[in-house]
Write a protein that binds this DNA or RNA. Sequence first.
DNA 1: CTGAAAGCGCTAACAT
DNA 2: ATGTTAGCGCTTTCAG
Lengths: 336, 336
Amino acid sequence: MATIKDVARQAGVSVATVSRVINGSPLTKSDTADLVKRTMRELGYRPNAAARTLVSKRSRAIGVVVADVSDPFFGSLVKHVDTIAHRQGHHLLIGNGYHEAAREKQAIESLIQNQVASLIVHSKALDDDTLRAFSEEHGAIVFINRLIPGLEGRCIFLDNYRGAFLATEHLIEQGHRYVAYIGSSHPIEDTVQRQQGYEDALNTYRVTDKTHPVMMAFDTPDETGGERAMAKLMADNPNLSAVFCYNDIMAAGAMTALTDRDFRVPEDVSVVGFDDSLIARYLHPKLTSVRYPIEEMAALAAEQAIAVSSQQPMRDEKGNYTPTLIKRNSVAKPNE
Amino acid sequence: MATIKDVARQAGVSVATVSRVINGSPLTKSDTADLVKRTMRELGYRPNAAARTLVSKRSRAIGVVVADVSDPFFGSLVKHVDTIAHRQGHHLLIGNGYHEAAREKQAIESLIQNQVASLIVHSKALDDDTLRAFSEEHGAIVFINRLIPGLEGRCIFLDNYRGAFLATEHLIEQGHRYVAYIGSSHPIEDTVQRQQGYEDALNTYRVTDKTHPVMMAFDTPDETGGERAMAKLMADNPNLSAVFCYNDIMAAGAMTALTDRDFRVPEDVSVVGFDDSLIARYLHPKLTSVRYPIEEMAALAAEQAIAVSSQQPMRDEKGNYTPTLIKRNSVAKPNE
DNA sequence: CTGAAAGCGCTAACAT
DNA sequence: ATGTTAGCGCTTTCAG
């Protein structure tokens, strides 16, 4: 690889001059600049990013920690971060946390070590204190899908409670009285917030009459988990007519369980999911789901992260996003 | 950030000693090593990766270029590369090419500049010469989903032809005579290879009788493309009873077009997809599809890339993968 | 407008 | 077993 010295020698200038044209410094004569540029091209010169980062103490890298890139939800998050990053001349380092505290921690540490200028972290397994410590260490970390007390300005998150409330309310408004909740057995805050929204919606509508019982089942947040939870719910509650699920995948499992038992969706049982992920549109019937505006959230996270890292004035946008309900074909009025 | 000097001073040793314990050199007394380790911990020291890369001329980074991380297919590829990389102490830099030559080129260049030790490239828009030039420049590039003449040992790819043949043959064996192909209008080699496999399967079965006509339509490789192509096919060929599609998304679109016209799948028309992606299992009916073993391919790519970059002896595995047919519920025997 | 020179934090001879 | 030291490729004063 040609170095800056090679270019300097070949062009008959000093390395300082070459450095200046690399960085587009205005105080180089355009003649010299042209000469240098030509030489760089001839030599196939590429500035060594490691050297630049070392000396200037700032890289153009943005680190992203997600649970699992192969999950379309996180894929989408990464993509939108990349779009913004690319626009600003930054590139991405990624780390997978796989919902495990140790892996998440390791991923963050690895990225810090690799001198990322900023960091976008989706962590559910690490506690507030650990995250606060990282935030103190790095300075340019933005947390996505999480609200950490004391770090409100660095958090971008969704109102899970409201999404769940919306979904449950929609079901109630359709006339359902026996609405169940299928939750995740993973001990992360999202599931309790969604459960709370579900329960509160139910409670809101039974202040006058006591006719909306709470029915819940918890299992792993995947397809078979949804299937098992639904099976359990059906066994325990014969007159159930609607379910709100923690996410779309569990909803898919729930629909399978229902279909296997000859219940039709939505004629016999209505189903609502959460995330409005890719599969929502491919399920049969198409799934009504709470939309998670991850694209916007990821883009904002990237903008904030880069702004903080380059001490630009950060647009003071609130990190709190409100979900909306996307109505498709998995909800109908109850029978009778 | 504490540097190696800080640690050395604090521990009362030289930077060389600290460097030795960082790198697990065996020639340090375990007493000193322990002391140094403790000091590193106390100071919250993290080795500066940029400095290490600069001086040692090798990083522990592996670059991955895909078309779009938010596509589950690529997400899966990235994940499996990460798994292997992580196991070997490497981390990932990613770049999106979005099927555009300029973006792909830029992504590769950016990664090279960032001193990745190795590179896994999924490129469909760049020509062989460009890719060969990059390969010459970097040395540790592995190409995935592509076969570049002269670089066979660095290519990991799927036998598209065989996959298409398999799918078409399966349809014929079920008794179908009017089997159509929905292809991608993008000018990449995959689509012509799959078309060839389709045509050859048809030809194989009409050597004795001329009863299997070729019927094709091409459109964008997405859902609406599949829908349009299917509509066109139906209009032109009233007695068509089966379609083989370029990928699962187009198959999804085709199924929509069919359903909209009151044709049942698979009773009236059988459908086969390609990739066996996430959605294949969620479509209704579940889609029979050609499985693309991207996980294994990605893992092998990562292993090879790392091996080459660290001049380890590379296991001489062939990069040629054979697809298999995953039978689900979208294929049946034809009517009558 | 350009050049000389001092490091950035670390590794790897080379000494001891 | 440990210390000294010369850079890696680049940016950035500071002089001219």
